[in-house]
Nucleic acid binder design. Structure first.
Lengths: 348, 348
DNA sequence: CTGAAAGCGCTAACAC
DNA sequence: GTGTTAGCGCTTTCAG
């Protein structure tokens, strides 16, 4: 069954069927109605390949993520899928696992399938590779940072807002000795989080201690290793902020292994607010970054370029907010708890 | 740039270029070499749409999952992507969120993109909807159960093996009072797990207690609710098996909220062995089902149908094994711990 | 407002 | 072993 079948049954030419399907306004409404009836009755739908071949638009949006197994990404993918499909696009998701070889393979796949745009949500760029896309004028959208050029948008995440809230929350509880477990070196979003932490610390009048800036890689294992290292330090902080939730969960686990308690012995703050952060033990205080907002902004930006009217040519600003979600992994610094009940009792 | 460009530069016809690319063996090696050189130099690759249009094969494999946000699925998707891409396929992933409307939309998307096959990994079937695929002769592969027919394969998971190991492990520790938190009603894989549990229990000479078969839905929230309900019972079991890991994590969390300890007050076993099961508090004893094996079997089955030579027409059996992974959420039944240290001390 | 016709880039007969 | 050619199903001028 093809467009000709419909044309024959509706007694019109294939051109008219095509126009009807594509909602060209000049089609006589009566004829259009007749065409639609035949289409519905036969449950016909156009062949996407043929359509893409002739029109040059595939109606496919690519999405490149770093690791699909980090719970942050499936939540993002879900949103991206929902919004893209809502606007008639199909999505092509691919994960790089931080491997440049995979990244290059990803890009090739996107090119081969002639995607109408690509959202690069790896939180870090492999600039030279992405040039292949830019050169072929594929609209791109990045997080945080990316090359500038026509058809390229960057989503700005305000890391500072949420992280400052976190640091202030800790400071308000009485913490002065706060460590930070970083994300991968060179990953822009990770650097930004660290910067935001450092700035916020100083805002609170606290001088950062270099020994308490631990390296990590945004994985469970990285978080465990960082905490293990911290445990070896002569003087321990009373709180630790992590560059993402997976890291924080690793920290929680190492604390548990060491027989220490959170937040009694150490307060912990994560970043992302992935779903399971609600049920960690204890539930994780973390900075929320909306996956839905990110996905929505990404699709919107890509559509603006792909469906490009003149007005959309003028670049929009896309800003993503972050906010602290207080749960139970943060509390008074070690020692303060002992004092507090006394004071409370004294008042009685 | 298209196939004609290559043909011109290599001084051959487009047919020869096509044959070279498709590795038709009759092409003169010398000429083929010349063609490849031009291809490499220009970094040419064929237009997939055109290719699909004429050949009827899209080289796209569909993957329908229930919820991408359950960590089990991203791990499966990763494997599916890797193996499919390795064999030259692109993948089209879509999640149904257990919503029939979404499921039907999913199927439509698969049909529109003319996928060469679909893996339905929802662990439950919406038979009437899938008929649309079967009717159009799209090769299908299911987990556990599915309609029979040409081009339809079913991957058999041996739930019994791993679950029996779990029950025996519990029995060996001295548990006789074991509860089970089920998955969604009507979900075949969930029913199978419950069955396997019941059978294994009887094998150990333990009569199941109906009050200890709790309903759940394979989510964190379901697990929490089930445990909450169990906490209200007059007589509590000493161990609980869960239909999946998310449920078990919910159980762990409710135990924590109730101020009870795992495994001291209750032993807990999950199912799936998702990555974070390693770092729950305590680390979760669970039944491992290999996502990689599942993904590999699914792609293999689909390819056999799609690339269909005669020999592949004869159906293969695909079996997936399950095995217990013992961690720290299981221990002696409540009370037994007190005895043990005494005995140990007595020996000294 | 509608139809005829020319391709989009490629594969697969079919000739040579 | 290689080239010629007829489409795959659709969109889009260009006439009418």
């Amino acid at each position: 069954m093809d467009i000709r079948t419909i044309a024959r049954l509706a007694n019109v030419s294939i051109a008219t069927v095509s126009r009807t399907i594509n909602r060209v306004p000049t089609v006589n409404p009566k004829i259009a109605k007749r065409v639609w009836e035949v289409i519905e009755e036969l449950d016909y739908f156009p062949n996407t390949q043929a359509r893409a071949l002739v029109s040059g638009r595939s109606w496919i949006l690519g999405l490149i993520v770093s690791e699909i197994t980090n719970p942050f990404f499936p939540e993002l993918i879900q949103g991206f899928e929902d919004i893209a499909v809502e606007h008639g696009y199909e999505i092509l998701v691919s994960s790089t696992n931080h491997d440049p070889k995979r990244m290059s393979h990803c890009i090739r796949r996107m090119l081969e399938r002639k995607v109408d745009g690509v959202a690069v949500m790896t939180f870090g760029i492999e600039a030279p590779l992405l040039d292949q896309l830019a050169q072929r004028k594929v609209p791109l959208v990045f997080i945080d940072v990316g090359p500038d050029g026509p058809g390229i948008n960057v989503l700005k995440v305000d890391y500072h807002h949420g992280i400052r809230q976190g640091v202030q929350h800790l400071a308000a509880l009485g913490h002065r000795n706060i460590a930070f477990v970083r994300g991968p070196e060179g990953l822009h979003s990770a650097e930004s989080r660290l910067d935001a932490f450092l700035v916020s610390l100083r805002e609170c009048g606290i001088a950062p201690n270099p020994a308490w800036i631990l390296s990590g890689d945004h994985t469970l294992e990285g978080g465990m290793a960082a905490m293990q290292q911290l445990l070896g330090e002569k003087n321990m902080p009373t709180a630790v902020m992590c560059s993402n939730d997976m890291t924080a969960i690793g920290v929680l686990h190492t604390m548990y292994r060491a027989g220490l308690r959170v937040p009694d012995d150490l307060s912990v703050i994560g970043f992302d607010n992935i779903h399971i952060a609600e049920v960690t033990i204890p539930p994780l205080t973390t900075v929320q970054m909306s996956r839905f907002d990110l996905a929505k902004a990404a699709v919107t930006a890509l559509r603006a370029c792909a469906e490009g009217t003149e007005k959309s040519a003028q670049k929009h600003e896309y800003n993503i907010q972050t906010d602290l979600v207080v749960r139970e992994s943060t509390g008074f610094p070690r020692g303060a708890m002992k004092d507090l009940p006394k004071k409370v009792r004294a008042k009685k």
